[in-house]
Design a protein around this nucleic acid. Sequence first.
DNA 1: TGGACTGTTAATGCAGTGTTAATATTTACA
DNA 2: TGTAAATATTAACACTGCATTAACAGTCCA
Lengths: 225, 225
Amino acid sequence: MNHKILLVEDDIDLGNVLKQYLELEGYEVSQRYNGKEGLECFKEVSFDLCILDVMMPEMDGFSLAKAIKIIDIKVPFIFLTAKALKEDRLTGLKLGADDYITKPFEADELVLRIKNILNRSEKPKNSDLLEIGEYLLDFENLKLKHTNEDQFLTLKEAELLKFLILHKNQLVKITTILESLWGEDDYFLGRSMNVFISRLRKYLRFSPQISIENIRAVGYILKDQ
Amino acid sequence: MNHKILLVEDDIDLGNVLKQYLELEGYEVSQRYNGKEGLECFKEVSFDLCILDVMMPEMDGFSLAKAIKIIDIKVPFIFLTAKALKEDRLTGLKLGADDYITKPFEADELVLRIKNILNRSEKPKNSDLLEIGEYLLDFENLKLKHTNEDQFLTLKEAELLKFLILHKNQLVKITTILESLWGEDDYFLGRSMNVFISRLRKYLRFSPQISIENIRAVGYILKDQ
DNA sequence: TGGACTGTTAATGCAGTGTTAATATTTACA
DNA sequence: TGTAAATATTAACACTGCATTAACAGTCCA
């Protein structure tokens, strides 16, 4: 699920700092210290994005980019450079660089640019997907996805399931659910909720590792191991 | 075949120069002078790229970008700004900007960046021919083409269909549709929209793989296949 | 002024959702 | 083990939102 980034930078300190920062953001970073190593690495593993220093021993960033493009024409890349020369920027852009950053740069800005580039190359799924066992709840589209079956949910069904997933493996009190989803805690709304719990169990019956368990007179736990 | 670019810039001189330059490069440029005009323009025609000034009267570039993203989440955009403030850049990038250029800038560099962005997002959805099932919507000419039949649409019919096609297989909320196409979310406008949905279904009835499905109290999904 | 066209409003019937009811099952505790 | 309360499950219900058709009002243009 994590995006893989190839970082090629001959300044070891800068490279380490950058790598740490990117890993904090949840990316998987492979670090190399010159163009040759970078190319070798790219041949072995496929990456979602490349960050390339321009000035490097053995093989400069531009040559590396050309070589990488032959292997995978679609992979996006970002150039790093100390020089703010226009000619340099143009060379990089002509190679199809997705971005061009001059040192010194702000790490958080770089991360944002990376996010945008990766989001763009992803599919148009702007909806957040909630995971539970072998299921995926696409809340925006009120859809519960399973291996070979998509189950459409009603609004309340989806709201309740989302609430339970967000509190996965935690005991949620009946009063909490009712007040959050129905607005008030009332005996008859409680009966209504029973029906919804029952329906959710039916939808989730295909995954043995999932269960909605009741704690008598207290609440429910959506268990997932 | 030409890429269409929406240029929104309140500095008339700069805008004109930029427009000329882009047209020399073979782009079709629509020029507007503030955010409101820009949004109106975007509602009418679909663009491949937007270039937005940040500081503008009536509606600033960031607000415009947000509004545009609601209509078409995939369209790439570039911000122009006189300020080189970090905070400003971050705001733009958070909105998903594909690029962020500070004035004064080199026109040839801008053009290169535009080329890269358009190459990357190269999809068969250039121009205003929108595909859905066995149908083809020619938005400019308000014509819905089918194998042996051409159906002329009214403006609102075409707008609604275009909106649904751009969000194909996604659930679009009723409030989103009303705010984007009617300007406000209101009960009676909702009734009006029902009628349009009904008419679209009638036009699309010849393709069994297409359907406009309703999610009660939430919105619609234009399903293809 | 009158017809053609577009978008809105009105009218009617239907269908899906959330609720209630009916019945069965489980749990807690004497 | 027996009893009452809580919960599960299924079916039936009522109400709201939607679909569809038709009628209406405003606009454009001859």
